[in-house]
Design a protein around this nucleic acid. Structure first.
Length: 841
RNA sequence: GCCCGGGUGGCGGAACGGCAGACGCGACGGACUCAAAAUCCGUUGUCCGCAAGGGCGUGCGGGUUCGAAUCCCGCCCCGGGCACCA
């Protein structure tokens, strides 16, 4: 499509200037107020995709807009450069992950520059840089000292596709790996964990004050999954020969239903199972345990119809402490070892899972809550007065719960407790391309951290990458064998690397002070920039990254690395919608990308940015369709109109049409003076309404309507410019300057070029954000809508300052209204001047 | 099953409880041109009507209100998240 200007040359020119002139490099001692804008740093997967363009367009817009508003805006960028794709590619092609990654970073960096995004590039971080690895490892050491990092054997999620363990957060609800889609298996392995659960309560409470999308907060609350209840012990019956009493400890959120306990269930992995299983039940118990151990999450949850196969009686009985009754002890795979105590009291009358299980196995049901009249279902889980419950009888749920807990505590058999669904974060990965976990195993000294002075532990380059389920580092003798830092004896290095979410859990802090040589960052400098004022990213990180980063910020504060008072890293969060093509998310892994470079080369970065802003509300998903190309071309067409309007008929950018007496163009922002004809005044009003509208829309992330306002303004302005009663140069200048300023954050290249042409030596992005003249922005005339019985019958042009009486007088005088009323008397008159009058008959 | 979003022209989408459909895409008509492209101007929810004008319209059914796309209740559909967490 032929264009009004040389888009490529103009865009390239400004991209180079922004890099050369370093306008977006800021330092912490800048005298302007500080503002920290951050887009989630990208995994370098090659040239940017549309999701990146969308994300970084929003970020760049805010950076430029805030800068024009007088802030020192910190706008850093980096690359989340460790991760599986590079390693998988290495196995497929033989290219080393480092070479592969560096190449991908070059490509991505080039595309970020090509869409006109500006950053303080001095601060660039790459997670695979030795400096970043070093501080990652130092942080790990501090966590180890503080008991926040620990090694434990645990049932873990194993992904056969990725050949590594996964964090709970990386396993989808259907039991598959979020990355590869493979069915995740269970394995018992010794692994490194970070103690995020220590912060469960704080992570939950901290959400309240965050300016985040409600949806994301809810997802985090659900993930943390706080539940209040009680733990108590049940005595195991039988085997009177033993001296010590054996007990089973259960957790329940419904201690008020304890009198309805008709059996007890242990998780198949529960340590007491062997001891409690009687010889005649041994075979069936063993079979169930074997099956549960082998079963993946997906199998374990997918066979609801086979409940009979999912539980087995141990042969032992326990005593319900509330009523002294013996109840059978079962094992069943619907009870999980990892939650609570791994054992439950089963109350089929008030729990649906217990009800279903009891029904299959013929276990008794005792109601302890009076269901509402007419209730005919199975378990009743709602409120109701207690029955069959001795001292709790007659009490409603909440009160009965408190009384039951008090009783448990009086008896000394248990206590009130809070449980969380949140588990500790498993960070070991049996892969090469990640940050090595800096510990050494010594036969004599045990687990020994690598001393800070010996860090970083770097990855050796000469590894053999093979998918064996073991880190390639384990087979690298020079890496693996090392003297013990403590005793000097033979020892072996940890060969696992860290989950890459560790890298992204503190990069935003490093950005504040990426030059720090003796620590990850200066906490005082971090304290001055943090928290991030505006964080922007995809909603797919609602749980994983955002939860980990919140945990790290707190934990780093508690070990003295981050500022102590800093608890929350991201004050405001914006999550953009995703890009879809043909109904599914556009992504590299799905292979349905539509490359942005195609548009940048064709219609230009400004047009593509404008499209992303214009297409709809930023939070909404975007469907990439056949129509999209045409809309993007429309955006380019609009920029052409702006260009032609700004340069006049000559085709070349010209200085302002209107020069003052000394021949120099007047400074921007000088309002036109002297007599104004009605058309001139109308244009000035439109100009100031535009400023007010765009300012307001930017504040509420309503970029699509801001763009629409600019388009409508250009339509009007073109009309005015060609109007024989309009076209006054100073009025045009005011209008064009306002338009360029308003558009500068959205389409930076074309506005920079036009501004420079009109104001030689000036940069549009260095200008102050325009301020609307409130008197002019207020509309001069208003349309009074006259309704009869709520139906619009007439519209009258009125003064906006009109009063109620005047509005009614005008309305009742309307010919159309008189005709409609046909002599009927109004029963009621509603006047909302200057917008509306409603006459009810 | 539970918890969030969301259903408005041919399409993307506008609309503090007060003119539904701003702005754009597409379509149609016109100007310019030998012609095309580009550009410019106009029309474009739907039905009735030559017109003036009127009826109907924001997923469906109720309700609140002088007035509902907007608020409330009950459904339907789409998207997302969670789902043996006791």
């Amino acid at each position: 499509m032929p264009r009004a200007y040389d888009v490529k040359a103009v865009e390239r020119k400004w991209q180079m200037r922004w890099l050369d002139e370093r306008d977006y490099e800021v330092d912490v001692d800048d005298r302007r107020p500080r503002y920290y804008v951050l887009c989630m740093y990208p995994y370098p997967s090659g040239p940017a995709h549309q999701g990146h363009v969308r994300n970084y367009t929003f970020g760049d817009l805010i950076v430029r807009h805030r800068t024009m508003n007088g802030f020192a805006v910190l706008s850093p960028i980096g690359f989340d450069s460790f991760g599986l794709p590079a390693e998988n590619a290495a196995m497929a092609t033989g290219v080393h992950p480092r070479t592969f990654t560096d190449q991908r970073i070059r490509e991505l960096k080039e595309s970020l520059i090509s869409i006109g995004a500006v950053y303080d590039w001095r601060r660039e971080i790459r997670s695979h840089d030795p400096a970043y690895i070093k501080w990652n490892q130092v942080i790990f050491n501090r966590f180890l000292e503080a008991g926040l990092a620990y090694r434990a054997k645990a049932p873990v999620n194993w992904c056969p596709g990725c050949q590594t363990v996964l964090a709970n957060e990386q396993v989808l609800a259907d039991g598959t790996c979020e990355r590869s889609g493979d069915v995740v298996e269970h394995r018992d392995l010794e692994q490194w964990f970070l103690r995020i659960t220590r912060y469960a309560e704080e992570l939950l409470g901290g959400l309240d004050d965050l300016d985040w999308p409600a949806r994301v907060k809810t997802m985090q609350r659900n993930w943390i999954g706080r539940s209040e209840g009680a733990e108590f012990e049940l005595e195991v019956l039988g085997d009177t020969s033993r001296a010590d009493k054996r007990v089973v400890k259960v957790f329940t959120t419904r201690p008020d239903t304890s009198f309805g306990m008709t059996y007890v269930v242990l998780a198949p992995e529960h340590p007491l199972v062997d001891e409690l299983t009687t010889p005649d039940q041994a075979a069936v118990v063993a079979e169930l345990r074997a099956r549960a151990a082998r079963a993946s999450e997906i199998e374990r949850t997918a066979n609801e119809g086979e409940l009979a196969k999912r539980g087995a009686f141990t042969g032992s009985l326990a005593r319900n402490p509330f009523n002294g009754q013996p109840v059978p002890i079962w094992i069943a795979d619907y009870v999980l070892m990892g939650y609570g105590t791994g054992a439950i009291m089963a109350v089929p009358a008030e729990d649906e899972r217990d009800w279903d299980f009891a029904a299959v196995h013929g276990l008794p049901v005792v109601r302890t809550t009076q269901p509402p009249e007419g209730f005919s279902g199975g378990a009743w889980t709602g409120d109701g007065v207690k029955i069959n419950s001795a001292f709790l009888d007659g009490l409603p749920l909440a009160e009965a719960k408190d009384r039951a807990i008090a009783w448990i505590e009086e008896q000394g058999i248990g206590r009130r407790t809070v449980n969380y669904r949140l588990r500790d974060w498993l960070v070991s990965r049996q892969r090469y391309w990640g940050c090595p976990i800096p510990v050494v195993y010594c036969a004599a000294c045990g687990i020994v951290p690598v001393p800070d002075d010996d860090l970083p532990v770097l990855l050796p380059d000469d590894v053999e990458l093979r998918p064996t389920g073991e880190s390639p580092l384990a087979r690298h003798e020079a890496f693996r064998s090392t003297p013990c830092p403590r005793c000097g004896g033979d020892a072996r290095r940890e060969s696992d690397t860290m989950d890459t979410f560790v890298d992204s859990s503190w990069y935003f802090l490093r950005f504040c002070d990426p030059w720090a040589q003796d620590r990850p960052f200066d906490p005082e400098i971090a304290a001055r920039w943090m928290p991030v004022d505006q964080y922007i990213g995809g909603v797919e990180h609602a749980i994983l990254h955002l939860m980990y980063a919140r945990f790290f910020t707190r934990a780093l504060g508690d070990v003295g690395i981050a500022p102590e008072g800093l608890r929350e890293p991201f004050q405001r969060l914006f999550t953009q919608g995703m890009i879809r093509l043909g109904g599914s998310k556009m992504s590299k892994s799905k292979g349905n990308l539509v490359a942005p470079s195609r548009y940048v080369d064709d219609v230009g970065a400004d047009a593509l940015r404008l499209y992303h802003l214009f297409v709809g509300p930023p939070a909404d998903d975007v469907d990439w369709s056949r129509q999209t190309d045409e809309v993007i071309e429309g955006c380019g067409r609009f920029l052409d109109r702006v260009w032609r309007l700004a340069v006049g008929q000559e085709g070349q950018p010209s200085a302002k049409a209107h020069a003052s007496a000394d021949g120099r163009p007047p400074a921007a922002g000088q309002p036109p003076t002297g007599e104004l004809r009605p058309a001139d005044l109308a244009q000035r009003r439109a100009t100031h309404r535009l400023i007010a509208k765009v300012t307001e829309d930017f504040a509420r992330w309503s970029y699509n309507t801001a763009v629409a306002a600019c388009m409508a303004f250009v339509n009007e302005l073109a009309r005015y410019a060609h109007d024989p009663h309009g076209g006054r140069p100073d009025v045009l200048d005011e209008a064009l300057d306002a338009l360029l300023l308003c558009m500068a954050p959205m389409t930076p290249h074309v506005t920079a070029e036009l501004w420079e042409a009109r104001h030689p030596g000036e940069k549009v992005h260095a200008q102050a954000w325009p301020v609307a003249d409130a008197d002019l922005a207020r509309s001069e005339r208003s349309t009074l809508v006259v309704q009869v019985n709520g139906k619009v019958r007439d519209r009258v042009d009125v003064d906006p300052g009109i009063g109620e009486d005047e509005a009614l007088r005008i309305a009742l005088a309307s010919e159309r209204v008189v005709a409609e009323l046909a002599g009927r008397q109004p029963a009621r008159l509603i006047a909302k001047p200057p917008r509306l009058v409603n006459i009810v008959v």
